[in-house]
Design a protein around this nucleic acid. Structure first.
Lengths: 209, 209
DNA sequence: ACATACATACCGACTAGTTGGTATGGAAAC
DNA sequence: GTTTCCATACCAACTAGTCGGTATGTATGT
């Protein structure tokens, strides 16, 4: 539809433009409500290009999930909280980082995987599968620091690191839904603050400051 | 499409059949992916009946949110946990009840409001509004017990009852997403167990049993 | 007689996917 | 070194079917 600065200067190739556009548009509109033409329009390419790179809309959904996951891995992989020597500090740093990025338009901080799996879990098995893989992968990364912190500060606790890692993701996903319902990120920040307090309590660390 | 036991014996009127059907089908497929014909088929009525009762698909979405909310109010209003004299027992009873109903097909325990608002928050303001209203209403109901328990057991805590009420809903909504991603309710039950532990800690009650 | 509660038949707009083609570039043939 | 060949990347136009919504009818109760 809209061709923006078409082809002018050094744009990445159509495939990555389509994946970027899909990420943006699907987070705004949802998977089903997003048409292939919407994505093509946002990417500034034609439908022919779309079906040259993806054999179906569903395949694009799967690839967009992978694309989103790569983006997230870069974002969190290069975040400053990894520098902490103490694993509990890293975990708290992760949570604070998640809170800190809850700003701007809703579609820019919400999770493509949560958005897609909610709509597609029953009708598009391949998308459900991809979303599960990447959500669990991220939760497991968080769970590594949790496991190390647990060994140090709460070795006898009955909960597992894996389950707490998944819980952090549940809180975040739920926070996004409340933010969407309320039209802003404030409620999500409040929820992450509760999550932080829970983690502090689990590791027997008195509430700080 | 499919007319099942059409009109045969003492069925409720078309309007409630449509609302029931909408609730079921939208929770399975999402709002956008659900067509008016899908709902008519599931309700066993024709499109004429649909547009006799609802002026648009969006209006049906709004009414389905209200319908779901009424159903939930009845379910939780008649649940046994209200019998506890102690407000903290009522709160823990609510959480246990939420865990107990996490069984069977995913679409039967997930929340229509969370499902719809995720897709419609940006494109259908009326639906977003309705979902916000009913989610907040339910959270406020939970927050009543929280406020009473707080006055008794944690009067100086820095968190507000309202914010903890919303947090319970965030955890639930997030649990539903993880359940959808993993294809079963187990992970959601684990998340609710974390929520329960958090509440116990907030009210300085030693972990029971 | 009139309103309510449906049903049937249909329309225009849209949607995923297809078709047939062009532009470009690199490797191999001569 | 230039022509031939072929693959990749992309485009514009089209199709077959689907979608939300409408127009028009009829049966029933009051």
């Amino acid at each position: 539809m809209n061709t923006k600065a078409t082809r002018s200067s050094a744009q990445p190739d159509a495939r990555s433009r389509l994946l970027d556009a899909a990420m943006r548009v699907i987070r705004e509109q949802g998977y089903s409500a997003t048409t292939v033409d919407d994505i093509c329009g946002a990417a500034g390419v034609t439908k022919g290009a779309f079906f040259h790179h993806f054999k179906s809309k569903e395949e694009l959904g799967v690839e967009a999930a992978a694309h989103f996951s790569r983006m997230a891995e870069q974002l969190f992989g290069s975040a400053p909280y990894h520098q902490h020597a103490d694993p509990l500090d890293r975990l708290l740093g992760y949570i604070d980082f998640r809170a800190a990025i809850l700003t701007g338009p809703i579609a820019e901080f919400t999770c493509l995987l949560g958005t897609m799996v909610q709509e597609a879990y029953d009708s598009h098995p391949a998308i459900r599968q991809a979303c599960e893989t990447y959500i669990v992968r991220h939760a497991d990364r968080v769970a590594e620091d949790i496991a190390a912190a647990k060994a140090l500060y709460a070795p006898d606790a009955t909960w597992s690191a894996e389950s707490l890692g998944l819980y952090t993701q549940a809180v975040l996903q739920g926070s996004f839904i409340l933010a969407k319902a309320k039209g802003g990120p404030e409620v999500a920040r409040d929820c992450v603050a509760h999550l932080r307090r829970y983690v502090l309590q689990l590791f027997n660390r008195p509430t700080e400051e």
